[in-house]
Design a protein around this nucleic acid. Sequence first.
RNA 1: GUGCCCGUAGCUCAGCUGGAUAGAGCGUCGGUCUCCGAAGCCGAAGGUCUCGAGUUCGAAUCUCGACGGGCACGCCA
Length: 600
Amino acid sequence: MTNLEICREHGSFMIKEKLAEIVARAFESACAEGKMGELKECPVPIQIERPKLAEHGDLACGVAMKLAAPLRSNPLKIAQTLAEHIGRDKEANGNRITSFAVAPPGFINFKLGSAWLNQSLSRILIEGADYGKLDMGRGKRVLVEYVSANPTGDLHIGHGRNAVFGSCLVNLLKFAGYEVEAEFYINDAGEQILQLGRCAYALYRRLQGVEVEYPTEGYPEEYLSEFVAPIVEREGQAFLSLSEEEGAVKLADLTMAEIIEHQKKLLAKLHVEFDRWYSERALHKRDQVKQVLEEFLKHGFSYENEGALWLKTTELGDERDRVLRKSSGATTYLANDSAYHLDKYRRGYDLMVNVWGADHHGQVPGLKGAMKALGEDPERLEVVLTQIVNLSRDGQIVRMSKRMGTVVMLGEVMDEVGVDAVRYYLAESSPQNSINFDLELAKKTSRENPAFYIQYAHARCCAILRKALEPSQGQEGQLPAPVTESQWQSFLQEYKTDPDVFESIFADSSEEVVQHQKALIRRLELFPEEVREAVETRQPGRLARYAFELANELQKFYEVSRVITDQLSVTKARLGLILATKQVLSNALGIIGVSAPERM
RNA sequence: GUGCCCGUAGCUCAGCUGGAUAGAGCGUCGGUCUCCGAAGCCGAAGGUCUCGAGUUCGAAUCUCGACGGGCACGCCA
């Protein structure tokens, strides 16, 4: 989609789109004069990009190079023709574009004036917490299923990554206008639960002094004790007389409840929330698994072989057929999951996103094939795989293994480095890359980590606003606030109605300082586009990095531009800029779920 | 063996729908506070973008092949 199309679709004001329109008009007028060969309309999207080097200007357009092939002409020459027509455009006046030039190998470079920048500041302050929101998801319902950890133990750092990514994606999609539901699928049925019960019942009895063997297969005693101990305390000897089987069933339920409760609390502490906790057991109770097997049969995609029921996934894009019902009569994970996902499809979402650990990637073709077999569109189901988190201590990578006792729990990491830092680090990276999380490093650098840096920038904006609006203690007693309350109220109105007030941001500034000032505003203006790209690529982490860049831009601005000055018009303009920066930092942090403190 | 993911600065990571001299943070070294928060800012050093070939006016980016790492390949979940 070109910038122009986005502009039309969303009706929103973005500088790149305004500029793309000007270039498009230049192309049209050059066309009309027959300077574009046989072309009637532009065959390539007109894209505006940001040059890597400041000396190339604020924005650039490389469309001339893309036109070189269809026109069979020199890109530089095409660029010059376009530039000539841009020069005749009334929109391209000095307030909007101070200068533009053609540069090899065929770029048209633009230097921005202040008019559009000032307008974007007004827009930010008008829209406030809504600034950056898009309507690309309007009317679309999305289900995001994530974490879905087995209720058989504590959450580790890998679950943490899944949880943070998923919740950021939920926040992001909501911000982009989607109607989003977050769901956690609880695998509370099947063999693993029985095994949990057997272990838990053995542990229960041992804690009461009964000498029984602990099962060799299953969950290590030390990981279960924190969940079984409260049951012993609460229930006492109530279950000692049960048979081994009855005891296992009873303890499975009670232990599972403890574990789920623990997981919920931990996730809530990490600001990870769900609209629905979906129970696999309930799925079985409603006979949905049995029903889905009938559906497969009805669609002609299942067959029996050697006592088992198979799904013809080979015909559906998988490398081999998969078992749905074992010869023992029990259904497989695929069958249960098919029932669950068919249920999701029947609930009528436009898009379903599953956030899975990458070690489950082998299941994707099977599940997608199953949905296809049921006559559903597999494209509506997206699986985002999150790669593993390697934990290291003192530079030594620790492979997480429950047996080796080297598992580091999510809760421990949260306690060590803080919720905000955990969220930032886990949100920042692309899910398909494995990451290394060095605990010693995270602890050591806890004051200098990017999360903190962004928060610091937000707090600094708040500090400047406080300084401007609150009386201060000087050597001669109390000094009045530089800006009175009534002045401030009037400023807030002017920001929204008269973009020209921001012109004073640049007053008395050298060319170099103006560059810093414009860079900050440009970055603020970029936010909606960053949101769109994050949605399209399903990478909320881009906003974490954006927030960091914005914080950096603020610091650079701050170093060279005094906000509170003895010139009221300058103070007014720059306070508005600070207010806008604080707002955008807060909006971006909101999506990645990191707090935006007023002071720290 | 087959399939998927990955390989960018000493370390951790961006950039990948092809564009100008490949970027951040950490770490190292050096500057910078009579002035709104120095938890900051500025600068330096550090790279055959794993290697090779191809496509292109142009490749970290696309294609193919090596090499290296991870994961998955059950009538487990």
